[in-house]
Computed example of a mutant assay.
Amino acid sequence: MEMRSVGSQGLVSSAEGLGCMGLTGSYGAADEDESVRTVQRAIELGVTMFDTADHYGAFSGERLLGRALSGRRDAVVVATKFGGAEMDDEGRTIGGANGRPEYVRASVERSLRNLDTDRIDLYYQHRVDPRVPVEETFGALGELVAAGKVRYLGISEVRPDTIVRAHATAPLSAVESEYSLFARDMESNGVLETVRRLGIGFVAYAPLGRGFLTGGVRSADSLAEQDLRRIYPRFQKENLDSNLALVERIGQIAAGLGVSSAQLALAWVLAQGDDIFAIPGTRTRRHLEENVAAASVALDVPTLRALGSLVEDVQLFGDRVSAMDTGIQG
């Protein structure tokens, strides 16, 4: 597995990580034992970045990751997030995005306990709190770095001007946003341009389009009742049926190369620059091994051009985000 520098502050990670949101049931029922084995198998395959958040499973995501990493903690980069929604100590959501300094300090202590660790390698503000200047939030985060409780800082789903302000307060190592052949607005909204100008790494979550680009989602009716994808506009029936045209085109190119659609989609993300990281999520070792194999798929220039032109040739229907994600692009 290729290792890359995550920004310019000193953090290093595997180019491909593991997104841990689905390990506790966000996309349907999950087998906890298999989730633990998936994390451990990822380490065996050279994956070092494991990305979770406090509200994934109401703390259960952090706790599962902490158990899975027992005895292996020093070999990995633990990334977690705070403030996407305000939570009490019982894991109940009691408010929206919260970036108040006192909440930042309480959240990091809670995550340290949940993860059973003495430091967090990469700590993200999950969503910007519109009531709190980002300078106040990152002032508190900078203090956590100085105290050794956090090593490096990140921020998720923000506009370029917010990236600049946060980075000026306490240096960022990573910006995390959705990015894939299914969601390419980071190329045109100034985010990628800004992180590259400032020497910040870019972590692409949902690089498989929340599983859509694998070809495994052919109908909205196939999604479990508790599957979060049901709230996303691109997965609504009228949109999903039309968006399958993109999946068909990707599948044709993948077949010609002798790789799976998932591997092709991941290889495309990783080929966009050595400052970009992909964190596909999966709940099984089988899919994990398929995803990790994508890191060794080399795409030639004609293939990259063909994939790049898809955004112009295939119209996508529906917004990539849900109206419920109120803190996005703060």
Rank of each mutant, 00 (worst) to 15 (best):
M1T: 09
Q9S: 09
E16D: 02
L18S: 11
L23N: 05
G25D: 05
Y27G: 05
Y27L: 03
A29T: 11
E32F: 01
V36K: 15
V36A: 13
A42L: 01
G46K: 07
G46W: 02
G46R: 06
V47H: 06
F50I: 08
D54T: 01
Y56E: 04
Y56F: 13
G57Y: 09
F59A: 02
K81P: 00
G83Y: 11
D89H: 13
I94R: 06
I94W: 07
G99N: 10
R100T: 14
Y103L: 05
R105H: 13
R105W: 00
R105C: 00
S107G: 03
R110L: 14
L112V: 08
L112G: 07
R127I: 04
P133S: 12
V134P: 00
E135K: 10
E135V: 14
E135Q: 14
F138L: 05
G154L: 04
E157Q: 13
R159G: 01
P160A: 12
P160G: 10
R165M: 02
A170K: 08
A174H: 03
V175R: 02
E176H: 13
Y179M: 06
A183K: 07
A183E: 14
R184W: 08
D185Y: 15
E187F: 09
V191G: 07
E193D: 15
T214N: 06
S222C: 05
E225S: 15
R230I: 01
R234A: 03
F235L: 04
N239S: 11
L240T: 08
S242R: 15
A245D: 13
R249I: 00
G251T: 06
A255Y: 00
G256Y: 12
V259L: 05
S260A: 08
A267R: 10
G281T: 10
R286Q: 09
R286T: 11
H287P: 00
L288Q: 06
A298E: 15
L299P: 08
D300M: 04
A306N: 05
L307Q: 04
E312I: 01
V314Y: 03
F317S: 13
T326E: 11
